[in-house]
Design a protein around this nucleic acid. Structure first.
Length: 447
RNA sequence: GGCCACGUGGCGGAGUGGUGACGCAGCGGUCUGCAAAACCGUUUACCCCGGUUCAAUUCCGGGCGUGGCCUCCA
């Protein structure tokens, strides 16, 4: 079964195995991770889940030991600095200490959230602050190669030095300059030149460099960390579609510029955007949903399943109705799959995933699959029933429920239906729904 | 303003130049003291206007709508 993935660079479904130099014993994937200044929201959850499935699929195809997955944590950023400055001012403390505190707390929360979503830890989770030296070295290489220039404490990438700049976003320099709304700083040679390094004042976190105390620009960290952990060229690079330009375009410019033009990634994958109840998510509309809030009300696996019901490149609408439907499906499936002794991955299911990660198709295959293939498919997609179980047991006295069920069945046997219905209604009032099946009575927490 | 993506039945959501995926809901039934659950069966579709074609939901052009990028953003 050959995996084909839609490649933003070529706009076709490409097979990794068709690329010369592809090494099936060392499959490498890089995904842009969060900038840690605030809680991750539901939109952030989409790439995390989607690329976790890609990771799991690659491990299935090539073996877990042969897949290397890097998802960075961006802990250098001007939004972070703004928060750090607020915190430092409020306390009269050091701005760097405030930055470190905010990013450590936010990163910890993020890892906790995505773990609840059933995502495996990546092979590496590098933090930008640990790779400043590599960034500085890459910038020096770019200057030496004629791709960058220093000016007024800044270092800028010279886009005119790279004739194919814009190939990922499919935009020409002329188009971009014509439509540009960028403030053109006087030290830029071209309006599209972007910052690799910029100076920091005393109230802003900064690191020493040949160009003075400063901090890296937004894009260079991914280039530097990717090269340090995966090498010059890797197989899959992923992120949200909004990152295509400028972030990924600039990563390509930097990495290829620093590596004699060797390609940065073979396949570029981008997930589509998400709306909430038919509207774009924004703080002003009041429909800004964080993963953390959602996890108060929903098992992480429900959120995960809901995300995989739509294809990752399609725009998706996140709704409570969809979550309810997802929960129902998962619950029914777990009941079927859990007793299975020998799970297997079905051919049609795997074929769907290998066709550009068609998870809706794969889920449809699970609906008609035999029990062992349902169990195997759920496992491959990262579902284990842990979260649902936790949710089901939350604040529930299982012994009391078992006693009530026994009492009700006594009453039913005695044809005392007034009493049996009273017990059932009393449990329902506590949010416990009874199900009478051929094998006896089971219960679940009402949604 | 420039560039790009998407628009499928009551809802979610794949896919295809010609035999109406799949799920939810609904309806009918089996089971059940009843209800729920489970199981079986079943109704409803491709935004609008042109074009290409023997044939278009599927290809092309235009329109409308939603969203994305061009500035931080998954």
């Amino acid at each position: 079964m050959t995996l084909r993935l839609h490649n933003t660079l070529t706009k076709t479904k490409d097979a990794l195995e068709d690329f010369p130099g592809f090494d099936r014993t060392n499959v490498r994937m890089y995904v842009c991770g969060p900038t840690v200044y605030d809680y991750a929201h539901i939109g952030n959850a989409r790439p995390v889940i989607v690329f976790d499935v890609v990771f799991r699929l690659l491990r299935h195809l090539y073996g877990a030991a042969h897949v290397n997955y890097v998802r960075n944590i961006t802990d250098i950023d001007d939004k972070i600095n703004a928060r750090a400055a607020e915190l430092a001012a409020a306390r009269g403390s050091d701005v760097e200490a405030a930055r470190a505190e905010i990013t450590a707390a936010t990163a910890g929360q993020y890892l906790q959230d995505v773990t609840a979503l059933g995502c495996l830890p990546p092979t590496h989770t590098p933090r930008a602050t640990d790779y400043v030296r590599e960034m500085v070295a890459m910038i020096e290489t770019l200057i030496a190669a004629g791709h960058a220039y220093a000016a007024e404490g800044h270092v800028l990438y010279d886009v005119s030095s790279k004739p194919d700049y814009g190939k990922l976003a499919r935009r020409s320099l002329d188009e971009m300059i014509a439509g540009a709304r960028v403030d053109v700083a006087p030290y830029k040679k071209s309006p599209m030149d972007f910052v690799l390094w910029k100076p920091s004042d005393a109230a802003t976190p900064g690191w020493p460099s040949p160009w003075g105390r400063g901090r890296p620009g937004w894009h260079i960290e991914c280039s530097a960390m990717g090269a340090a952990l995966l090498g010059e060229t890797f197989d899959v690079h992923g992120g949200g579609i909004d990152l295509v330009f400028p972030h990924h375009e600039n990563e390509i410019a930097q990495s290829e510029g620093a590596h004699q033009g060797h390609p940065l990634a073979r396949i570029w994958m981008h997930n589509g955007f998400l709306q909430v109840e038919g509207e774009k998510m924004s703080k002003s509309l009041g429909n800004f949903v964080t993963i953390n809030q959602l996890l108060q009300d929903w098992p992480g696996e429900v959120l995960r399943f809901n995300m995989l019901r739509s294809h990752y490149r399609q725009p998706m609408d996140w709704t409570v109705a969809g979550m309810t439907e997802s929960w129902k499906t998962l619950e029914r499936w777990y009941a079927i799959a859990e007793p299975v002794a020998g799970p297997r991955v079905g051919a049609a299911f795997l074929a769907a995933l290998c066709d550009d990660l068609n998870t809706p198709q794969a889920i449809a295959e699970l609906h008609r699959a035999p029990e062992d293939e349902l169990a195997g498919g759920l496992g491959l997609l990262g579902f284990s029933n842990v979260q649902l179980r936790i949710a089901a047991k939350k604040a529930v006295d299982t012994t009391a429920i078992a006693d009530a069920i026994a009492a009700r069945n006594e009453a039913r046997k005695a044809k005392n239906f007034r009493e049996s219905d009273r017990i059932r209604d009393a449990l329902l009032a506590q949010g416990i729904v009874l199900k009478d099946g051929p094998g006896g009575t089971t219960w679940e927490v009402k949604r």
